[in-house]
């Protein structure tokens, strides 16, 4: 088990391999579809992003509303593939890790190598369990987006697994290769 605390340095990322389990403690940011769209629109207009992404981690999540007195509602990862179209400008802005669920397109696997960044997965569909690792939450941008607003979270021992490392490693490819017990008469494709 490796421990990660942002901001992440290249040295730390060099030590991570697909399949490694990690625990994250520190400040991370949330963003999903609509917030990403606004990030890219801001960059295209030459405006600064509402958060400084250098060395940071973005968690793809749209939590449920917190009950009174609670920090946050259910807060598990959403499918990362939908954010692939927005990846390169954010990596250019210094983003070093993303947390979500599911595979990335092969293009993003290549981008992660190019920009020295990692993709982490958290377990999908266990949002109640994961919410207990979140110790504070506040909206820091795009409040009008509701569940899709950008939040700053403080997490402690947030569990994740390295799915794609900076060397091109891919946990999903490896997992299926190891466990498949059927001959398929067709190609399995993953988006470019």
């Amino acid at each position: 088990m490796k421990r990660l605390t942002p901001p992440l340095t290249d040295e730390v990322l060099e030590g991570l391999r697909a399949g490694d389990k990690v625990l994250i403690t520190g400040r991370i940011y949330t963003a999903r579809d609509a917030a990403h769209k606004r990030f890219i629109e801001a960059l295209e207009r030459g405006e600064p992003l509402p958060i400084d992404l250098r060395g940071q981690i973005i968690y793809y999540v749209g939590p449920t509303p917190a009950r009174p007195g609670m920090i946050i509602g259910s807060a598990g990862p959403t499918t990362s593939l939908r954010m692939d179209k927005y990846m390169e400008p954010l990596l250019k802005a210094g983003l070093k890790a993303t947390i979500g669920k599911g595979y990335r397109s092969w293009r993003v696997v290549e981008l992660l190598k190019k920009y020295k960044a990692v993709y982490l997965v958290a377990t999908g569909g266990v949002g109640a369990l994961i919410s207990k690792r979140i110790k504070s939450a506040k909206v820091v941008a795009y409040e009008d987006l509701g569940p899709e607003a950008v939040r700053e979270l403080w997490v402690e021992d947030f569990p994740a697994i390295v799915a794609n490392d900076i060397y091109g490693g891919d946990i999903f490819r490896d997992g299926v290769e190891r466990w498949r017990r059927i001959d398929l008469k067709f190609e399995i494709t993953r988006p470019g």
Binding site: V61, P63, G73, T123, A128, L129
Partner: peptide, 24 residues
């Protein structure tokens, strides 16, 4: 380990009336 997390999540969600998944 993941299947066990799913079972643990189910118990926690029921106890606290928290959605099992954030995508309701």
């Amino acid at each position: 380990e993941i299947l066990n997390q799913m079972l643990e999540n189910a118990d926690l969600a029921a106890r606290e009336k928290l959605p099992t998944c954030q995508d309701t």
